[in-house]
């Protein structure tokens, strides 16, 4: 059996009942369309008032303040955390700046120390070089003096040797003793 014809029939009987009288009892209590059955209204209104009223009070007194509180605490907490994050960022920025400042200082100081050390080393090296040069100079002049001395001595020896040699050669050739003074004069004359 189809429902649709049955439904149509149902509606017809309902229309009949609504049109004529409310006596006919087909289904339920009175046979009118249930939502329009005014005999159920007092009960529905009463129970709606009770249930909805309690619901309203419960939400108003308990649930909504609680959810509102949760949301407020959360937004407070988020704001607080954001503040703290900003503060920490500031601190870290300051620390970074201080670190960089310190680093720059240290670099400058290291440069200065290096420069100073270089200067000192250079000055020392210069002094050392000067000392060595001076000592070399003095030894050189000393050596030159000695050479001159030796040369003089050697020159003096040369004339003596020449005189002696000349004396000996003359003695051998002439077979007589030579006048020392004459030889020496001769040698001097030759040497010029």
């Amino acid at each position: 059996m189809f429902v649709a014809p049955a439904f149509a029939q149902e509606l017809e009987t309902e229309a009949d009942q609504n049109g004529h009288t409310e006596v006919g009892v087909e289904h339920g209590s009175t046979g009118v369309f249930p939502p329009f059955d005014s005999s159920t209204y007092p009960s529905q209104l009463l129970w709606l008032a009770i249930t909805f009223g309690l619901f309203y009070l419960f939400l108003k007194k308990v649930v909504l303040p609680r959810i509102g509180g949760i949301l407020e605490v959360r937004s407070d907490r988020i704001a607080q955390d954001l503040d703290q994050a900003a503060r920490l960022k500031e601190e870290s920025d300051a620390a970074l700046a201080a670190y960089e400042q310190e680093l720059a200082d240290a670099k400058a100081k290291a440069g200065a120390i290096g420069q100073e050390a270089r200067d000192v080393a250079k000055a020392e090296a210069d002094a050392e070089r000067k000392k060595v040069e001076a000592s070399l100079e003095s030894r050189l002049s000393e050596a030159e003096a000695r050479i001159a001395l030796i040369k003089d001595a050697a020159m003096r020896d040369v004339s003596q040797i020449a005189e002696e040699t000349t004396g000996l050669i003359v003695q051998e050739l002439l077979g007589s003793k030579t006048d020392k003074a004459a030889v020496s004069a001769a040698v001097k004359a030759v040497r010029g």
């Binding site: 429902v3 439904f7 289904h27 339920g28 249930p34």
Partner: peptide, 12 residues
């Protein structure tokens, strides 16, 4: 009739 479309609104 249990399966007509109006029964579901019936108040008991």
């Amino acid at each position: 009739m249990a399966d007509d479309p109006i029964t579901q609104f019936q108040i008991s």
